[in-house]
Design a protein around this nucleic acid. Structure first.
Lengths: 377, 377
DNA sequence: GTGAAAGCGCTAACAG
DNA sequence: CTGTTAGCGCTTTCAC
């Protein structure tokens, strides 16, 4: 059975909700009494505002410590009309949540930033758009949270307007490089990493560089695709074929087969995430195409496994934890009516490992590789 | 800049906390007035208790719908002395959170169960034991949550006692097979999967089956190690060497090298998780040991990548989402003073893929393999 | 069946 | 600088 609220069980049925007996919860009144001051004095001290003498202050703090008292979050929330909590709604099938290395780290970062700022993080996982909308509405109507994070932005996302209508403050979490991003976006430069990857491949002599994209309609999918294309154009190369993926291993494998089936198969593929890239490498191996000697592969995310697959995966890494922190701090500032600080997030980093190499000699169309010494690490 | 609480900005400084102008928040009073009843009637309807006539009930519901009103969670929490929220404290370095496929799924499951039961999920990520303890204390003292989940149980975990002292209801999330588990544990049968794996290897003729364990001191590490050992003994085999790992890829690689360096290297290794197993396969490949022809490998978790590495990974899968749901339902029952239902969680499942095969002919010490036809997924 | 009134524990005006 | 007082929005007895 499950541990009840009461540690010493007497075997009685389903009973105890609260602590038994007389032990009333200690309140601000008890602290005030013990320190010989008024409740407001206690309140003032615990809200860090002036107007309380040093002596009284000391006594109050001592009394609170002795009684082991902390302001009750519920009462505080009610009287300040602020929940002192931030909401994160994640729209994704629960089973698929662990496909994505982004969320665990992002949640960790957001939580760390939130609790540093004195806010709690309320999480909700919803399967579809309808449930997502309801979740935001409930957060707003029930005043459960003071603001929310918007992740997984879609092209023409309706949520910003909805949240404005609900008067629910928010920050948009997204790649910073999108040309038409809405104001209020906190993101790091996704595109830079992809561009760096393309340059790296070009420097290795690759001329047919394909892309396996993420789920269409998502901003981060688009940003990565655009970055890939723009950099190819900038290098004077023709944008190779693009295959739409959906960030799953199955899609990565399928897309890879599709690309290698072409009459002019690419010599390098830039995948929109590591999971697809690794599945792609397996697919290549299955048909006797060797990485990196026959085909170079680049991923995105730098998942913990990336260094440990065969061959180790060249990829792009972002500091997602720090990103999450920055989002939390920005949202707190917004909620409290302050102008959020402009934070400089580190750009995505390009990590060179074993899955990229020189273009196969018999496939290199012409010219010698440009010079390019990636920093990696 | 970040989107403020007010959609139409007039360029003023850091100002608006709440909605501007006259638009007062609609309250239960407004609904009562509009429906021509008292506040308590409204309250009764929204709390599903008898004592309100059908006609009044209809009008109340209509009024609430028209005014778009839902009970304010803060006020409700205060007057009912219940936060209507559940807490999950995760102790882990933020950067390491994505190493673990467990949490994203577990969180998703817990959240789904919580919101089905009308509870919010408050998450906190803490780096160490001290912060963890403070987190629980704050949850309790500030009445932020009504109960908490205890994950990553350690041998001789102090938290159960602490929570009892704080009068904070809780459920323990852990493998169900631990012999000395505390009452109130919700878990599925971790050990069954590992035992199945050992039997599978034995059936393939393996006699020297090693184990790469998880972080020592954690219940789930111990349970898996014990299951491995017990099954070997049950099969009449000598427990092979055990190397301690820490669930990271680096540890998996190191441990594998250590095992293969021995004078009597194992022909099969059971790893405590997939990440170590995959890194172990890479380590083996690096030294020319081939999987599965020279070495069989079994993981644990069935991460999304498991089918897509080379070779695909034989592993153990649990329905972590369902597990999380069950935990949430049990905690809600506990919090509300009911006896939690005894839920039957599906046992861990053994998934046979490409990383396990017959013992190498020249290494099979004696006898012919027993018959064992694993079911797979 | 319905409504008035007293809290829940804290914050924040406003007097003293 | 300190204390008194009126809420915050909802729940819940308890008379009517």
């Amino acid at each position: 059975m499950v541990s009840p609220a009461r540690p010493v069980s007497d075997g009685a049925g389903p009973a105890p909700l609260r602590r038994p007996g007389r032990e009333r919860k200690v309140t601000i009144g008890d602290v005030a009494a013990r320190a010989n001051v008024s409740k407001s004095a206690v309140s003032f001290v615990f809200n860090g505002r002036p107007g309380v003498g040093e002596a009284a202050r000391e006594r109050i703090l001592a009394a609170a410590r002795e009684l082991d008292w902390r302001p009750d979050a519920r009462a505080r929330a009610l009287s300040r009309s602020r929940a002192q909590a931030l909401g994160l709604v994640i729209r994704r099938a629960p089973e698929l949540l662990s496909n994505d290395p982004f969320f665990p780290q992002f949640v960790a970062g957001v939580e760390s930033g939130s609790s540093d700022g004195g806010y709690a993080l309320v999480l909700q996982v919803v399967p579809d758009r309808a449930a997502e909308k309801r979740a935001y509405e409930r957060f707003a109507h029930e005043s459960r949270v003071d603001g929310v994070f918007l992740t997984d932005m879609r092209l023409d996302d309706e949520r910003v307007g909805e949240l404005d209508r609900l008067w629910l403050p928010h920050v948009v979490v997204g790649p910073a490089a999108a040309s038409d991003e809405p104001a209020g976006t906190i993101g790091l430069d996704d595109a830079a990493g992809v561009r760096r990857a393309v340059r790296h491949l070009s420097a290795l002599g690759h001329r047919r560089i394909a892309h396996v994209a993420g789920v269409p309609g998502y901003v981060h999918s688009e940003v990565r695709r655009q970055a890939w294309e723009q950099e190819l154009v900038a290098l004077g190369l023709a944008p190779g074929p693009v295959v739409e993926g959906d960030f799953t291993g199955a899609a990565g494998a399928r897309a890879t087969h599709e690309l290698l089936d072409r009459s002019d198969p690419p010599t390098a593929i830039v995948f929109a995430n590591d999971l697809m890239a690794i599945a792609g490498m397996s697919a290549a191996a299955d048909r006797g195409v060797r990485v990196p000697s026959d085909l170079s592969v680049v991923g995105y995310d730098d998942i913990p496994l990336a260094p440990y697959v065969q061959p180790s995966l060249t990829t792009v890494r972002q500091d997602v934890v720090e990103w999450g922190r920055a989002c939390a701090l920005a949202l707190i500032a917004t909620v409290e009516g302050r102008e959020p600080d402009r934070v400089a997030l580190p750009a995505a980093e390009f990590v060179v490992r074993g899955s990229t190499g020189p273009v196969p000699a018999d496939r290199a169309p012409l010219g010698r590789p440009a010079d390019d010494q990636p920093t990696g690490r």
